[in-house]
Write a protein that binds this DNA or RNA. Structure first.
Lengths: 110, 110
DNA sequence: TGTCGAATTGAAGAATTCTTCAATTCGACA
DNA sequence: TGTCGAATTGAAGAATTCTTCAATTCGACA
């Protein structure tokens, strides 16, 4: 029983749908990072970060390797940059649209 | 108090994270579609589809216009195709990776 | 105006995801 | 071996999202 493709896609996007996970992926675009480094840049409890890293790991989009007493995460080679760029493009349009709406509302009440 | 960008991004991806919503966006790439047409192609209760369409509408990624007794949805101009293409690319890599893992597991047990 | 079909909405319970805490794993090093 | 720090895990409650039902809106048309 193969998972329908649109369901796999939905799960993929849901995996991206968390602020901490987004920040981790963005940080990893500059290269591998230890958990401690991530912790230093993201305001979140260690156990919470671990949980979010586990979500990313389970999806396969990142890999974790132990290096002495620290664990280093890296993008699993996938081209995350393109995805985030496409997302940013749409998001920009959407936010601009919302601002225009806001502006209209202001005019109406003026 | 502006919404942090990474939170806006996370909300955006969460908005995409539902099978029905993905299918709607894919169908709308071929042009505007009436709700009845969507309903004919997606196996889901009318009220459920409406709820998912409401999520898409609220995000601004689609627009709804009334045409007589039917309502027609369309992409709000945003370049959704690029996004879905980038997502498919990564997803393909991830699924291939999972298959390789599966193959290894089979070997191990052989 | 009255009625019909298309679509949406509100409400409520089910299901999923998040967050936090305490406990555990694992390697480094004395 | 014993202990420390780094990171993860399991569990439990809180929060969010999903699904379904019944009720409502809205235009078309008699």
């Amino acid at each position: 029983m193969p998972v329908p493709l649109y369901q796999a896609k939905a799960e993929f996007f849901r995996m991206l749908g968390h602020p901490v996970r987004i920040r981790v992926l963005e940080l990893l675009q500059d290269g591998p990072k230890a958990v401690r480094e991530l912790l230093a840049e993201i305001e979140v409890e260690p156990s919470n970060l671990s949980a979010q890293l586990a979500v990313l790991r389970r999806s396969g989009i990142v890999t974790a390797t132990r290096d002495g007493s620290t664990v280093v995460y890296a993008l699993a080679g996938a081209d995350v940059a393109d995805l985030l760029k496409a997302a940013r493009k749409i998001l920009t349009e959407l936010l601009v649209g919302q601002n225009e709406l806001l502006a209209q509302l202001r005019e109406d009440s003026a």
